[in-house]
């Protein structure tokens, strides 16, 4: 798509796009290509020798029980985080949409966690869930007799990073659900209530189906968020531990490559993540196309 009326200039358009292209080529495409090449090589940590090993790095990764475990952790982590933050976001947005008074104030009170860095959200929740000082940890212990200890217990640690990641994302989902709810035609709701549908029935049969594109979009976005942007939570709070129980795929790339200096394996892991995100993006765009047809 393009304008009918355009300017004519020999050099100007190139000059205008140049900064953008330079940055993308230097810091996006070149490193991505380097990573792809490196993933077929085995090199020692000091960069002295480099041997071409075909798919050995990939084979090593997929036969490594630690990597397979990390896949499981990442999937569990992403799905739970997405589910928790989406369901809470939807609940709160539905309630806020029903409210008739103090709308602006309510929205203000609910959007601000968006601005909190994932790492800081991690610190706040670490304090609440700390085995010796945390008030929530204490409540769990006293109230439910649950011996909560995220410092030693892997499952508890995973639950802690899920809570910290999901909490921050509630306001993101809230904003999108509010936008979606306000787009539901009022006439439909009125007609349904004249036919005697209760508020719950109206929500289930009218609002929820109309929200399904938003719901789908947010599911994709939340999973991407949980995959890539929660690095800060994990680095600040658990560092992948205890015993690798919060070692997600992205954190593992960082640890194996940047800390462990295993270039080949880290590069191959990066390529796997790249393939994954390309897949998700293509999937999402296919869906958006469908949505447009549906609406039209």
């Amino acid at each position: 798509m393009q304008k009918r009326s355009v300017f004519k200039s020999k050099y100007l358009p190139y000059v205008l796009i140049l900064p953008q292209l330079l940055v993308t080529l230097t810091f996006f495409y070149w490193p991505a290509a380097q990573g792809l090449i490196q993933s077929f090589f085995l090199s020692d940590p000091f960069g002295q020798s480099n041997a071409f090993v075909w798919f050995d790095n990939y084979v090593a990764i997929f036969t490594d029980p630690l990597y397979l475990k990390s896949i499981g952790i990442t999937v569990a982590f992403s799905l739970t985080t997405a589910f928790v933050s989406i369901s809470l976001g939807l609940t709160i947005a539905t309630l806020a949409n029903r409210a008739t008074r103090c709308k602006a104030l309510i929205r203000t009170m609910l959007v601000w966690p968006y601005a909190v860095a994932p790492a800081i959200s991690g610190i706040l929740w670490l304090f609440l869930l700390h085995p010796s000082f945390g008030v929530v940890a204490l409540a769990l212990k006293k109230g439910f007799g649950f011996n909560w200890n995220p410092v030693l217990n892997g499952g508890d640690a995973l639950a802690m990073v899920i809570v910290a990641s999901a909490w921050k994302e509630i306001s993101y989902n809230f904003v999108f659900f509010m936008a979606g709810l306000q787009a539901v035609p009022h006439s439909l709701i009125e007609a349904a209530s004249m036919d005697g549908a209760s508020p719950f029935r109206r929500f289930r049969s009218i609002t929820l189906p109309l929200l399904s594109p938003t719901l789908f979009f947010l599911t994709v976005m939340n999973i991407i968020y949980a995959f890539f942007e929660t690095f800060g939570v994990i680095h600040a709070v658990t560092q992948g531990g205890p015993g690798g129980s919060t070692n997600t795929l992205v954190y593992k790339v960082y640890q194996d490559g940047f800390i462990g200096l295993d270039m080949g394996s880290s590069a191959a892991q990066s390529v796997i993540l790249m393939v994954l995100i390309v897949g998700v993006t293509v999937f999402q765009f296919k869906f958006i196309e469908k949505k447009v047809q549906y609406a039209g």
């Binding site: 991505a32 940047f258 590069a267 990066s270």
Partner: peptide, 9 residues
């Protein structure tokens, strides 16, 4: 290509 998938290079 977010930075998370091309950390080292």
């Amino acid at each position: 290509l977010p930075v998370e998938v091309r950390i080292l290079p």
